[in-house]
Lab assay of single mutants.
Amino acid sequence: MGFKLLSKLLVYLTASIMAIASPLAFSVDSSGEYPTVSEIPVGEVRLYQIADGVWSHIATQSFDGAVYPSNGLIVRDGDELLLIDTAWGAKNTAALLAEIEKQIGLPVTRAVSTHFHDDRVGGVDVLRAAGVATYASPSTRRLAEVEGNEIPTHSLEGLSSSGDAVRFGPVELFYPGAAHSTDNLIVYVPSASVLYGGCAIYELSRTSAGNVADADLAEWPTSIERIQQHYPEAQFVIPGHGLPGGLDLLKHTTNVVKAHTNRSVVE
């Protein structure tokens, strides 16, 4: 069995187990497998329904001669939608809004960016022009300005110390501490036991640490421990890039980060 097929099978099995364990909360999309990078042309966006009122959005972007996937989250909030992270750029984010209108038909009224990198804030200006209120932590807003990236308009308070959590509509926002970046936030959907790890969490097929220019490698494993301790009931975990899975993604990420750190020390 090929690795790609095995990865998709694991996603399907995880979703099936969740649907059985929580039949009222989960209505997993039966329309197909989780979209992969090879299936999404740059400039297009796919939506994948995880649970009743919960979707991931998947886009792709060219970077350094390669094409990478990027995940975000959409959560229903009454007759409105909360968006977590842009679709990595203005063109993708405009396509995301169009796809949401086509498939869901509810307005996106608020959006949260989970850290300051372009795959999370690139497209904020498109959201703002569409009347979406954009939010991020003060740290993310400051770092985005320093980096020359787009800056969300509103500040999220109460997320300055490791372990801080605040309720934001249908989700809980959690600051686990520094990891992929010093400002990275985690998003949890309690009604569906869905954990969105953003770039602080890796997919299972990833074996290298990737972009760690703004990471705190020493603190990252401790931050992941905080996530595990705060959300032990999480059933569906979405990484910032690639295929979702279960809580095993947290341990896998820790292993990859520690291996990278150990290699760096040896070198």
Rank of each mutant, 00 (worst) to 15 (best):
H115M: 00
D77S: 08
R263F: 11
E267P: 10
N184R: 00
G2V: 06
P244E: 02
E145C: 07
A94K: 14
V37T: 13
V67Y: 15
G148H: 11
V166M: 12
D216E: 08
I100L: 08
K4H: 06
A133T: 13
N184W: 01
T114K: 03
L173S: 02
V37R: 09
V187W: 01
T153S: 12
A66T: 11
L217D: 01
H241Q: 04
G242A: 05
G131C: 05
V124P: 03
P69W: 15
V112N: 03
T182Y: 14
Y34I: 15
A90H: 09
W88S: 00
D52S: 11
D248H: 12
R167M: 11
K4T: 11
Y48M: 15
T254M: 12
K251V: 11
D64I: 07
A59N: 14
T261I: 12
V189I: 10
V108T: 06
I238L: 06
V256P: 02
Y231E: 00
L13A: 14
V194S: 03
T253F: 03
V37A: 15
F236C: 08
H57L: 02
H57P: 02
L249S: 04
Y196T: 01
H117F: 00
Y202M: 15
E44P: 06
P170K: 07
L10I: 14
G123C: 05
M1V: 06
A94R: 14
A129R: 10
G163N: 10
L6V: 14
V112I: 09
G246N: 14
T253N: 03
L195Q: 00
L13V: 14
N211A: 13
E99L: 14
T261P: 11
N92D: 03
A90P: 13
E219G: 08
I17F: 08
V146G: 13
S70N: 02
I17W: 08
R206E: 06
L243V: 15
D248I: 11
G43H: 10
V124G: 05
E44W: 08
T207S: 13
K102L: 12
L204K: 14
W88D: 00
P232R: 10
V166Y: 11
D125I: 05
G89M: 00
A95S: 12
S205E: 14
I100M: 06
A179V: 06
W220Y: 07
L247P: 13
G78C: 05
G197I: 01
E233Q: 11
L83I: 09
D216C: 04
T140K: 05
S161L: 12
G246S: 12
A111D: 04
P176D: 01
A51E: 09
A129I: 08
